[in-house]
Design a protein around this nucleic acid. Structure first.
Lengths: 209, 209
DNA sequence: GATAAGTTTGACCAATCGGTCAATTCATTG
DNA sequence: CAATGAATTGACCGATTGGTCAAACTTATC
């Protein structure tokens, strides 16, 4: 029984098309949200006729759901970095760093998320109420333990996570504003590294006794 | 020369209509952004026919510009609280508190701003590059002085302001997410007060030597 | 109470929306 | 190479878009 390891031209064309549509959709949804996005603009950015787009993705909503699903996966992936260290400071620093890296590597994903929330989370609402809520409450328990052990100052863990999410995702969602405040240029790699370290240190100092 | 202090019925009807259209527009723009918003939906929320809306505001863009102008005014108003104290900690605490209060009092304004940035700031871009950039660089100078005086830790002031903006505006822009993580209910006044104090204390501790 | 000015609204318009479809082109397989 | 199925696309559809307009209505002024 031989498995076709080498993709047929047909299959790789399909793969390539789906990828280019997917990428175009990400950028349009990130910029305009679900309602403001148009399939015509997505097709234009993908470099194909609109009818071809609808051959691969039946509806705008189906395409949007594909896009959001990936965003949630990436979020959870970064979230796992919180659990990889035992020490409180190390775990927090690793998590903030991972969230900063994700914001830098995939700002569109963060913006798609932000647009969803602004619209009342019609698609990812269920994820927020279940997966995210569970993730948060279990990590709150960990942070509370650290507080009890005197490793962190007394505080409400939930609002600390909000600060982490806000401060890190800001570098993706408000990239345009930062550009305007940076002489029209995006943050350089060097600038971003400084920002990343500062976010980590400021937040860590903010919760260390 | 007598000035009409009491408004004529006509004038107050006009005032009321403009206000209700304005408020409806704020909520629709905050939820869907400029492109996703429709004049039909704004008219519906204002409780008037669409044609009547266009009698008061010629175009969707004109209405949007009115709305954004007010948002920028409110932002600057909150910004002034930074200058009302001489002591570094007091000035920072007052500013964060004012930004938290603004996010709580007018979440729609913050969301309209966020939508603008996500779309590349086509309307407020000029404000960002001039007024906001000037405000930021002059306050950076103040913070740098405090650092030189040993009142604050060494850091890049700009990224500290980004953290303040992110952490405070998060309470407006991501209110929907917080609700989902709070059993479907918005933050109570008591919860918000706790969050507000925690944001202030965490950020202050984060930059104090 | 007549006239003018300001306000309201249903009907309508061209453009764009998400989506369909049949005809055509293309790659694969027997 | 013939036949089959996947992929492509221009033309098209009904619905919705931002916006117009003339007619009707309401208030203010003389």
């Amino acid at each position: 029984m031989s498995v076709a390891v080498v993709k047929t031209p047909r299959a790789s064309v399909r793969e390539g098309r789906e990828k280019s549509i997917f990428d175009a959709a990400r950028s349009v949804f990130a910029e305009f949200g679900f309602k403001g996005a148009t399939t015509a603009e997505i097709a234009r950015r993908a470099g194909i006729p609109k009818a071809n787009l609808h051959y691969y993705f039946a509806t705008k909503e189906a395409l949007y759901r594909h896009v959001t699903a990936e965003v949630l996966t990436d979020w959870l992936s970064a979230a796992s970095s919180f659990d990889e260290k035992d020490d409180s400071a190390e775990a927090i620093a690793a998590y903030i760093g991972a969230k900063m890296d994700l914001a830098r590597a995939d700002p569109l994903g963060s913006r798609i998320w932000a647009n969803e929330i602004l619209r009342g989370a019609p698609v990812i609402g269920d994820f927020l109420e279940t997966t995210l809520a569970n993730w948060l409450s279990s990590r709150e328990a960990i942070v509370r333990r650290w507080i009890d052990q005197g490793k962190l100052v007394a505080m409400e863990p939930r609002y600390f996570f909000y600060m982490i999410w806000a401060s890190t995702q800001h570098y993706a969602d408000f990239e345009g504003q930062m550009m305007a405040l940076n002489g029209g240029k995006p943050l350089s790699d060097e600038q971003f590294e400084v920002a990343k370290i500062q976010v980590i240190e400021t937040l860590l100092r903010g919760v260390m006794p």
